[in-house]
Amino acid sequence: MITEDDIIIVDDMRRDMSLTERFYLPQIAQGLSVTLRRMFTKRVTLQYPEMRREPKLEGDLTDPHSQLNASRYRGVHRLNRDPDGRVACVACFMCETACPAHCIHIDAAESPWPDREKYPAKFDIDELRCIYCGMCEEACPVDAIELTYEYDLVGNTRNEMIFDKGKLLEVFDETCQIKPRRNPRITGYAGTGSPDHQPARPTGEQH
C-alpha cells in the first residue's frame, strides 16, 4: 500500500522551463547538432558473416566489437575429453537435474574404465530447447560439460539439432585449441598425460 510518505516529487520535473526551452528553437538546434555529429562518428556495426569477433581466452578483451571473451561466452555445449581422450563425464546426472529447460538426456552405463563407476552411454542435448543459461556447467562436478564460444548454430531439421555424445565430443575437438579444458576441481582425477596439472583449489583449503 502506498502511504503518504511514499509520495516523492522529483523537483526536476517541476522546474520552470527556461526562455530557450520555451522558445523551442535553440534546444532543437542543439539536438540537431548532436545527431549531425553522430552521423560522422565511427560505426559500431560488425559486418557479421565477413567480420567476426575473435574468441580469446585472455589478453586485451576491452574491445567488445572485435573480441569475444571465450572464457565466459555461453554458446554451443561441448563434452570434454580427459587427457587420455576419453569422455570426462561420470554420468552423475547433476546437469540433467539442474537443467531448467530439461534439454539434457543421459543414459548411464557401467564404466569400462577402472577409475570411475559410471560413464554416459548416451548423452543428448537438445540445442533448440536449451536456453544457454550455463547451469549444467556450474553443476558438473568434473567439469565435463562446458559451454563454448560458438554462437552461430544452424541446422535444417530439428533432429539435426539434438547433439549426441559423439557430436558434443567433436565440438570439444574443434574448440579445445582456443578454450582448453579447465582442470577438474573436485574429483582430483587429472588423467595421466597432463604435464601442467595443478589443483584448481587454493592450497589453503586442501585437506
Binding site: D6, I8, I9, M13
Partner: peptide, 13 residues
Amino acid sequence: EKPLGQVGREAAP
C-alpha cells in the same frame, strides 16, 4: 498538504 491532482504517486514522465 496534498494539492489537487496529486493523489497517488507522481509518475515522472
